[in-house]
Computed example of a mutant assay.
Amino acid sequence: MGRITSRSPVTRITLGDGGAAVRRRADTLAVEEPLEIRLAGEPLTVTMRTPGHDIELAAGFLVSEGVISAGGHFRSAIHCGGPGTGAVGITSTENTYNVLDVTLAPGVESPSTDIARNFYTTSSCGVCGTASIEAIEKQSQYDVGADDVVVDAALVAGLPDALRAGQAVFDKTGGLHAAALFDAVSGDLLVLREDVGRHNAVDKVVGWAVLEDRLPLTGTVLQVSGRASFELVQKAVMAGIPILSAVSAPSSLAVELATASGLTLAGFVRGPSMNLYSRPDRVREPSLQV
């Protein structure tokens, strides 16, 4: 795995009534590098990401694109690039981790060319490079609206703190998004991932579920560190996640997709309060006042 943090010299200026204090020191930054994802040797996309959990990232991306929908669809992945690279788990002393070649299981069709992303996806937006808007609107294999899970409001309210407590790299850099999957009944943390891109963090979480053969992710809550965009709702729906919780605001399109899909979308989950934008019946609170 490549570096996830790096050191850089910075000049820190602190303004005050008596003037400015200037101090020069080293700062820790989150690493951002390109990852090219290939299918059977053919380039599919390039995403800017924080190195680490690349196989999960690729697997989750393929779920989001509707290419796979079960753990058995994902056969293997190999980091490519130079001497010392090889099958998953083999260590290399060279920085050759930026190309990942994925092999799907026999009988699983590769994506058609109409979802090609011009081989570039930014770390801030997973759908910015999509060839056409129609390619975003995919039909999930799972009906999240049929999931009858009910979660306590107090549990949802506590998820941002649980997410923040697990952000080890954020503590060092202050520059990473995070996504975590929780059991909706017990509140147990199932998996947490960090990345410079919020969509990458979610893809890594979904990819973990692919490799663990846990799709669909019924009875779970996906907690994200930032806003709830259309793409994050889409990724949740494609993975069969019934509840998405965000510490910040949702977009209008995110709410529309959540409503149409039957996904429970919670935004501004901060302290004791939250806004429920769709399927509020899944959030149980006896003292709830309208």
Rank of each mutant, 00 (worst) to 15 (best):
M1D: 11
G2Q: 08
I4G: 01
T5Y: 05
R7N: 04
P9E: 13
T11C: 09
R12V: 15
I13P: 00
G18K: 10
G18V: 10
A20R: 08
A21Y: 01
A21C: 06
A26W: 09
D27Y: 11
T28H: 04
V31G: 07
V31M: 12
E32T: 13
L35P: 01
L35R: 04
I37F: 09
I37A: 05
A40Q: 11
P43F: 08
T47Q: 05
M48Y: 06
T50D: 01
P51W: 02
F61A: 08
L62W: 05
L62P: 00
L62Y: 05
S64G: 14
V67H: 07
S69P: 00
A70I: 03
A70S: 15
G72M: 03
R75Y: 12
S76F: 10
T85G: 03
I90C: 07
S92F: 02
S92W: 01
E94D: 12
N95P: 05
V99C: 09
V99Q: 10
V99R: 13
T103D: 14
L104K: 04
E109S: 15
S112I: 05
I115L: 14
I115C: 11
N118R: 10
F119D: 12
Y120T: 06
T121E: 14
S123E: 12
S123H: 14
S124N: 10
G126F: 03
S132T: 13
S132Y: 02
I133V: 12
I133S: 13
A135N: 10
D143Y: 04
V144I: 14
A146P: 00
A157P: 00
P160S: 11
D161I: 01
A162G: 06
L163A: 10
R164N: 13
G166P: 00
A168S: 13
T173V: 09
G174R: 03
G175H: 07
A179N: 02
L181N: 05
D183F: 08
V185G: 01
S186T: 15
D188Q: 14
L189K: 11
L189A: 14
L192M: 13
H199S: 12
D203V: 01
A209G: 05
A209K: 03
L217A: 05
L217H: 02
G219I: 07
V221S: 02
L222W: 01
G226I: 02
R227W: 07
S229L: 11
F230P: 00
V233H: 02
V237C: 11
I241R: 02
I241V: 15
P242W: 08
P242N: 09
L244S: 04
S248E: 15
A249G: 00
P250Y: 04
A254N: 04
S261E: 15
T264C: 15
R270K: 12
S273W: 07
N275L: 13
L276E: 03
R282P: 00
R284I: 12
L288I: 11
Q289Y: 04
